[in-house]
Design a protein around this nucleic acid. Structure first.
Lengths: 139, 139
DNA sequence: GGTTGACCTTCCAGCCAGTGGAAGCCCTAT
DNA sequence: ATAGGGCTTCCACTGGCTGGAAGGTCAACC
């Protein structure tokens, strides 16, 4: 298989696949003309990578997961630990975004959104009275 | 004020403040020794930036928001539009993360996490049977 | 006057995970 | 023979910083 075929199969851009080779995640053979030649196992690895990335795992997580996948003597606990850490990171992000969302939604709601210049969104961003403990110290 | 003072006030790292100058978000004066000298208005802008960034606005959004803030003739509608677009982006991210979270939580839940190698997380990532429509075509 | 140490300066490199584009082979079909 | 599509490498760029090196400046202390 050439890179285009495996790109279609894995739904990863060819560029990404070359990048994955660069960083050692996949090691296709080369045919006489210099083209990359992907075996079934390479295609399989790329599909694995595509799904792991779609779940938000970092490239380094993917590397570890692939290593565990190829290790017959792995303990599922090792896999689970990676997944749980990732889950925690996702939860943190969701929490952070949800807080942002709440604040922002509140401000958007309060803004008339008309031709007049008065705007509670800008007023909030420009607010002097946060970080007052710091200001007091230096005052 | 030197950069350290304004860094403390705005709770932004000095490096970040230098970067903001680089990209034209803030324009401090220079004193004879080459040190940046921040006016009250610069400190104010940096605080504004810190809060806008904390709400997840992109640097380019921040640039627009600062311009609107300084424009007496702005319409609040312009501010609101930026905020609403950002809100939509946040909602998209939350949705995406929530979907990931659900899938991942399901898999983590199904994994024994013991010394044995069997692992539904890896099994899912390695699954052949997704993207079957594509596979069928090329088969 | 010398020295420490905290502060400041610039510049260059790197992070993550790719993406875009140029310049140039290779292969097939007409 | 030539047009097109696919493949190759390489370099630069994205966002939003962050780290570190090499060196200038300033206030305090001995």
């Amino acid at each position: 298989m050439n890179i285009g075929d495996v790109a279609t199969l894995s739904r990863l851009p060819a560029k990404t696949i070359r990048y994955y080779e660069d960083i050692g995640l996949v090691k296709p053979l080369r045919s006489a003309n210099g083209y990359r030649t992907f075996r079934e196992s390479d295609a399989h690895r790329l599909a694995f990578l595509g799904r792991a990335r779609a779940l938000g795992f970092s490239i380094e997580d993917c590397r570890s997961l692939l290593a565990l996948y190829g290790d017959e003597d792995r303990a599922s606990a090792e896999v689970k630990e990676i997944a749980e850490l990732h889950l925690d990171r996702i939860d943190e992000k969701i929490t952070e975004l949800t807080e942002m969302r709440a604040t922002l939604a509140h401000l958007v709601d309060a803004c008339a959104g008309d031709h007049r210049p008065d705007c509670p969104i800008l007023a909030d961003l420009a607010m002097e009275c946060r970080g007052e403990d710091q200001l007091e110290k230096s005052a």
